[in-house]
Design a protein around this nucleic acid. Structure first.
Lengths: 199, 199
DNA sequence: TGTGCATTGCACACACGTGTGCAATGGATC
DNA sequence: GATCCATTGCACACGTGTGTGCAATGCACA
C-alpha cells in the first residue's frame, strides 16, 4: 500500500470499480445510462457523479484508457523491427485480451461520442495502416484492398471474433490471429504456422 | 401508372421517399430521431408520423425490408445447388449492393431494437451457417472457427468493407468478395479467380 | 467518544425525443 | 369555383436520462 491513507485507497478503489463496472455495463449495452452503470458497480447513481462529472467524461476516460493500452502495445511492438507478419502476430497476441476487455470500443465509434473516439483512435489507425502498407510492400500481405481499409477490416475482424460471445477458451487468441492473417491475405498454411509457432 | 389516382400515387411516393430518407439518415447516425429523418426526406416530423405510427415501426419496416431482400437472394441462390464456393460468390455478387444500401443493419443489431432485428435475421444467419458448414465439410472452407461464427465474421466483413466509405467504384464487389473468401479460408489465388471469373 | 469522508437517498430543474390533436394552407381533381 | 387530401405549423402531454443540492447515514481513524 503506497497510498497515504486507507481512505484515499478506498476512494481510488471505488474509482477503479466504477471504470470496470462501466466497461461491463457498456459492453452489454453501449447506450447504458449512468443508472445502469451504477447498478453494475454496486453503487448509487449519485456516487458515480462524485467521480465523473458527466457521462461523457466517464466514457471518454474509458476510451482513452483503451486507446492508450492499445497504442502502448503497438508502439512497443513496432520498435522490435521484425517482419510485418511477425509484428502483426505479436500485436494480435497482446491485443486479444484487450479486444475482449474493450469490445465496447467498436460500438462506441458509432453513436454519440463517435467522432471523439474516432479522433482518439487516429494514431492507432495510422500505425496499423503503416504496418499493413509495409506488409504489402514486402509482398507478404495481399493488395485486394488499400492498406488503410485493409488494416481497419483486419482490426475490426479481431473485435468481431472477440465479440462473438463463445465460451472464451473455445476460440482463443490463435483463431483470432489466424482469421486476421487470412484477411490480410496471408496463405492459410503460413497463417497457421505463424499463429501456433508464436510462444 | 397502375395506381388508381395520381393522389394515391403521390402518397405511395412519399412513403417510399420516407423509407429512403430514413435509410440515409440512419446510415449516417443509427440514433437519428424522427426529426432528423424527416429533414433527410425533406418533410416535417408530423408528416412522417402520418405514414409510420412510431419510430419503432419505421425501423422495423426498414429492417424487415432489408432482411426480406437478403433472404430472397439467399434462398434463390441456395436452390441453384452449386459448390459452396460458387454459391458464396454468387451470393456476394448480389449482396454487395444491398450491403451498401442497408449498411445500417449491422449498427441496428446493437442498441434499442437489437433483439428484434436479431430475431428477424435469424433465418439468414442459419442459412449462412449451413452454407459455411457445407463448405467446411467439402474441405473448401477453413475450420479455424466453427461454422456459425465463421459465417458471421465473413458476413460482417462484407458490411465492414461496404461501410469503409471509400469512393464506391474504387473498391467494388470483387474486393469484398475476395476479402470474404479469404476470411473463409479460401486460398488467395483461388479466391481471386472465383471473384473475377464470375461474369 | 468525537471527527472526517465516502456513500446514500431524495429532492429538484432541465433538455430532449416521442407521439398526438387540430386548425390552416395549397395544389390537384371534378 | 367547390372539394378533397397531403402537408404543414404549432400546441401539448409524457417519459426518460442527465446533472445538482443537501441532509442523513455509517464506517474508520485518532
Amino acid at each position: 500500500m503506497q497510498t497515504g491513507s486507507a481512505r484515499a485507497g478506498a476512494a481510488d478503489d471505488t474509482r477503479r470499480r466504477i471504470l470496470d463496472g462501466a466497461l461491463e455495463a457498456l459492453g452489454r449495452d453501449p447506450d447504458a445510462g449512468m443508472g445502469e452503470i451504477a447498478s453494475a458497480v454496486g453503487v448509487v447513481r449519485r456516487t458515480v457523479y462524485g467521480y465523473f462529472p458527466t457521462r461523457a467524461d466517464l466514457v471518454r476516460t474509458l476510451a482513452r484508457q483503451a486507446v492508450d493500452e492499445i497504442a502502448a502495445v503497438l508502439s512497443e511492438i513496432n520498435a522490435s523491427a521484425g517482419s510485418p507478419e511477425r509484428v502483426w502476430v505479436d500485436f494480435l497476441a497482446r491485443l486479444w485480451p484487450l479486444a475482449h476487455r474493450y469490445r465496447v470500443l467498436v460500438a462506441l465509434r458509432r453513436g454519440e461520442y463517435g467522432h471523439e473516439i474516432h479522433a482518439l483512435l487516429e494514431p492507432v489507425d495510422q500505425s496499423l495502416a503503416d504496418l499493413v502498407q509495409r506488409g504489402q510492400d514486402a509482398e507478404v500481405f495481399g493488395r485486394h484492398l488499400p492498406a488503410p481499409v485493409l488494416s481497419q477490416i483486419a482490426f475490426s475482424a479481431v473485435f468481431a471474433v472477440a465479440d462473438s460471445s463463445l465460451p472464451d477458451a473455445l476460440i482463443g487468441a490463435d483463431a483470432a490471429t489466424v482469421t486476421s492473417l487470412l484477411v490480410l491475405g496471408v496463405p492459410d498454411a503460413r497463417a497457421r504456422a505463424l499463429a501456433e509457432g508464436h510462444a
